[in-house]
């Protein structure tokens, strides 16, 4: 059964979730957004991979999100909140800039990789850009890890087009879990005063 009709909704979920992860101050809502993002990533990857293989990304992503959620729930770190209006405006402008950059890159990427669809290029490059943005803005471990996982998700969409190896898929899933576990360890060690 072809899932191509889901490409546009998947892209919409990817874009909205990545913006939400950057902007929201609620860690629970961010994790929910990450979970939805992984569904969308799986759909976009499934246009190049068989669906059972693409589902590995969903499973690994949700496990990573679960690990981060457990650690964040135990953590007594205060929420990281952007200041209104200056920091909010800056993040919004940076997000617009990322999307503009992606818009200019997508035609070149699709021309270089004809087997990649426009939706995959948009989704992958957007997540890469938003992930890097989240990494750059974040001071706290949890937010940085969300940014890193977002970046990795974007890369996996792009890479799925050129590499279909099962072993690579497994190892990348392992890397996702490893990042979550490492981050969980670091969050557990964080003190109330901030990162050490």
């Amino acid at each position: 059964m072809s899932l191509a009709f889901l490409s546009l909704p998947a892209l919409a979920v990817v874009l909205v979730s990545s913006v939400f992860i950057l902007g929201s101050s609620s860690w629970r809502l961010r994790l929910i957004a990450l979970g939805l993002q992984y569904i969308a990533v799986t759909l976009l990857v499934s246009f190049s991979w068989p669906l059972p293989l693409a589902a590995v990304k969903l499973v690994a992503g949700w496990m990573a999100g679960g690990v981060l959620g457990i650690s964040r729930g135990r953590s007594r770190m205060p929420l990281e909140q952007a200041r209104w209006p200056a920091e909010w405006m800056f993040r919004l402008l940076a997000t617009v800039l990322v999307f503009l950059a992606v818009a200019s890159l997508v035609p070149q990427v699709v021309a270089a990789l004809p087997q990649m669809s426009v939706m995959q290029a948009w989704g992958g490059l957007s997540l890469v850009g938003m992930g890097l943005l989240s990494l750059g803005f974040s001071q706290r471990t949890f937010a940085s890890l969300l940014g890193l996982l977002t970046f990795l998700s974007g890369f996996e969409i792009l890479y799925a087009v050129v590499e279909e190896s099962t072993l690579v898929a497994g190892l990348l899933a392992f890397v996702n879990l490893g990042i979550a576990l490492s981050g969980s360890y670091l969050m557990d060690q964080e003190t109330e005063e901030g990162t050490a």
Binding site: T141, L145, S182, G183, L186, Q189, E190, T191, T195, A196
Partner: peptide, 9 residues
């Protein structure tokens, strides 16, 4: 014990 987590991250 949480020391150095910024650099590790």
């Amino acid at each position: 014990q949480g020391r150095g987590s910024r650099g590790v991250l």
